[in-house]
Design a protein around this nucleic acid. Structure first.
Lengths: 214, 214
DNA sequence: TGCACTTTGTGCGTCGTTGCACTTAGTGTA
DNA sequence: TACACTAAGTGCAACGACGCACAAAGTGCA
């Protein structure tokens, strides 16, 4: 999942391993408890490092949690990238690109990601700083995807690609908000069905403006 | 098998873990190759430490190998101890104690231990120092067992216990030599049968002098 | 036998982890 | 509201792992 780091030497490798272990531990604790409800001591124990080491790598416990979320989003973007690459290339049209993106969107486990991030945010309560940080990361992910897809879809104007990706991503954000309100971000079968319905409605709605007239 | 070390703190614990990893790696390499035919670099890689760390814990590669053998013997003695404890207590007589010891002897996988140690010794060639070191360890193991069994068998004189244990251990050494000569210390089914035969002959031979007259 | 190469073992300095004592902030209760 | 306790975060020193350059020993070959 996360590519192994090629460190220049053992010392750097071990340092990177410790940092990764801390993030892995935070991730596991968040998944187990549905929210970042653990102490620095618990995190250090789970990561098998000392509590001082946690602060050697991160400025605060909040920093660990934010980095864990950023990492998860990075992985999700990678998954999405891989899914778009696996989709057969269309005829180079805007319609084909849209189909490619939405097919990839369905292939990625977005409910799990949204549930996770919401669990972290909900625990933070009115902490706008955390929410803002996550919005930043989400924005950057959208920009990265736009740039990459524009590179690959040379038949389509980069500006058009940016509009398309941004529209879809914004739509996903709206779907997420509704889904959380309707299901409480649980991950059971019925909750996933609700997600699928909302996502299909989003895709159908945006597609109406993209249908090929023949 | 090897009891987890209860270290006073993390630093001591990690240090002990590194030392143990080096010994585990040496053990694995000896078992894979039938003899201690590896470099310090290979050992360090396998143990996931730096080659400097190997020398932080041990004075030489030979020291690592010797400690690995000592550790194996220690484990074997522990297995033997456990086997004697599991054997139902006799009537407190010399004959009963002999039966207890020989039952335990059959329960321990001695061929594997002898084959391993022979592999290490053979690789050393005429290095008498290694052989002497191993004899020392074997002697100490015999002494430890004598002391422990004497403590548990209060009905029997400690001197008698020492004679008994020493006789049996010396017999095991003789069985080992013959077994190696006959089988080359291989561990296949026929080789193990030869070991069993030799051990049975040893036990029968010593028992003749111990049979209860009724 | 001499030479080139590899491996072992070592001294010393660097780096990162850890221990510990401390301050500050948060929390619960009387 | 004050107090006692817990937890987060920090500065500093000690420790052990590591990197590196080096000398010595071992090995293979011409």
């Amino acid at each position: 999942m996360i590519p192994p780091l090629i460190a220049p030497d053992r010392r750097a490798d071990i340092k990177a391993r410790h940092r990764r272990a801390i993030l892995d531990a935070a991730d596991a604790l968040i998944r187990e408890r549905g929210k970042p409800q653990f102490s620095v001591n618990e995190l250090a124990d789970r990561a098998d490092v000392s509590r001082r080491t946690v602060f050697n790598h991160f400025t605060s416990l909040d920093d660990v949690i934010m980095t864990t979320c950023t990492r998860l989003l990075g992985v999700t973007v990678d998954d999405f990238r891989a899914a778009t690459r696996a989709t057969p290339a269309g005829d180079g049209s805007r319609v084909a690109l849209f189909d490619e993106i939405t097919t990839a969107l369905r292939a990625v486990d977005l409910p799990t990601v949204v549930s996770y991030l919401w669990g972290v945010l909900a625990a933070d309560g009115e902490n706008g700083r955390s929410q803002h940080a996550l919005t930043d990361v989400f924005t950057r992910a959208t920009e990265q995807l736009s740039a990459e897809i524009a590179d690959r879809s040379t038949a389509i104007d980069a500006f058009e690609v940016a509009i398309l990706v941004s529209t879809v991503m914004n739509g996903v954000a709206v779907v997420s908000e509704h889904w959380i309100a309707m299901t409480g971000a649980t991950l059971d079968e019925s909750s996933r069905t609700v997600w699928d319905d909302l996502l299909n409605r989003l895709i159908a709605s945006i597609r109406m403006g993209y249908s090929a007239s023949s």
